[in-house]
Design a protein around this nucleic acid. Structure first.
Lengths: 142, 142
DNA sequence: GCAAAATGTTAGGCTTGCCTTACTTTTACT
DNA sequence: AGTAAAAGTAAGGCAAGCCTAACATTTTGC
């Protein structure tokens, strides 16, 4: 969308929009890597309408990240689970950094982690994880 | 826009959209706190069309962040300069962390800092700054 | 001082994401 | 089995941001 952040070269493309990444992440969180989730629960979790979930799900299914064999049975494909785990991990690491290291208030930390998790690359995630593991080990890695 | 990140309570509202924040930041970077900037240069800097800048500028002027007394003379108001500085500082600190602390490659670090700078609160900025200043002082604070 | 080049603005469109309202389909309970 | 509740889909809208093309204005450079 945004032209100013031109993905000119091969700047580690993201196949999914931030919103879609959120949906994927929520499926993982509600159902685990294999469990089935209901559309209605996703809507409640994300605070959006059923219609929004339905629409987003269409993309995820087409792109091969999710499946829905019958009424209510939304699951992740292998590819989807892997992708979702990546997002989830970004969230955890950012939350950990904000909350445990910087001391940001939990609610705020969660909120900000949610918005940053779509911005960092695999490379940065790896480095952040290493940094947090090596340099500081407060609380536990969650 | 997004409902899922409900700004329900008083969750430190941001008066400007991320895009508008980018415009403001670019005005600061091109012209300094007081210097005048041309629309065309903003467009080039941000990689968008003149029309997009013109449109965004209308908001910024109406909201009292920018002024344009004559052809090409785009400047920041006091309020605008302050706001822009805040965004700029977020960018600097995030870049510093990514690049100097985590060792992320400069181009990538700049890119990711750009996208995270709209997500962090004043409080987090303060904490991040303190953390970087106290715990690590690699290279210089830039 | 006047035409050409540079600059800025308007109008009209497209995409993404989200919402509401009104269906349809499935499940669940008696 | 048959109806009420729950779940899912479709249609129509809205706002943010961006684009192009056409138009208006201002500088510039003979």
């Amino acid at each position: 969308m945004t032209a100013r952040h031109e993905e000119g070269k091969e700047r580690e493309k993201r196949p999914l929009t931030p919103a879609n990444e959120d949906y994927l992440e929520a499926i993982l969180e509600l159902g685990g890597a294999a469990g089935a989730v209901r559309l209605v629960d996703l809507a409640a979790r994300l605070g959006v309408s059923k219609a929004s979930v339905s629409g987003a799900l269409k993309n995820l299914k087409q792109a091969g990240f999710a499946e829905q064999p019958f009424y209510g049975g939304i699951t992740l494909t292998g590819k989807g689970a892997e992708y979702a785990s990546g997002i989830f991990e970004r969230h955890q690491m950012l939350y950990h950094f904000l909350s445990d290291v910087l001391g940001v208030e939990p609610t705020r930390a969660a909120d900000e982690a949610c918005r940053m998790e779509h911005a960092i690359s695999d490379d940065t995630l790896k480095r952040l994880t290493a940094y947090l593991t090596e340099n500081l080990r407060p609380a536990a890695i969650r």
